[in-house]
């Protein structure tokens, strides 16, 4: 059972306090978008073995959404950050590079 630190309230939260929200950093495609883009936005998800960026909500805590970078193999949590951003912060990406040299996720590295 995971523990993940909520970046809003600072609590080292138990997994039972959190609810998972799937893949992070999706770009919304609305009316007028191409079928392929909309399909990818709505249905296609990364399923990495290794570094992953996810959305979580501290639902039984402060109620805030946040992002977490996690290894899907070892469950290591590299860090958490605000949900109000479109890509992982540079400092976190560098930290992951130290631990998992050569990692990639979508077009991020």
């Amino acid at each position: 059972m995971l523990t993940i630190q909520c970046p809003h309230c600072g609590v080292q939260a138990e997994e039972t306090e959190l609810s998972p929200g799937g893949e992070a950093h999706l770009s919304r495609f609305g009316p007028g978008s191409e079928d392929q883009d909309f399909e990818a936005y709505l249905f296609f998800r990364e399923n990495p073995k290794g570094v992953h960026f996810e959305r979580w909500r501290h639902v039984h805590g402060c109620g805030k959404w946040f992002h977490a970078a996690r290894c899907t193999v070892t469950m290591e949590v590299f860090g958490t950050y605000s949900a109000q951003t479109t890509e992982p912060p540079k400092a976190l990406r560098d930290k992951i590079s130290e631990k998992r040299p050569g990692w990639t996720w979508r077009d991020i590295a």
Binding site: G21, R28, R55, R57, V59, G63, K64, W65, A83, Q84
Partner: peptide, 10 residues
């Protein structure tokens, strides 16, 4: 929760 999700993340 649906409202909060859109307001906080989009």
């Amino acid at each position: 929760a649906h409202m909060e999700e859109w307001l906080q993340t989009e």
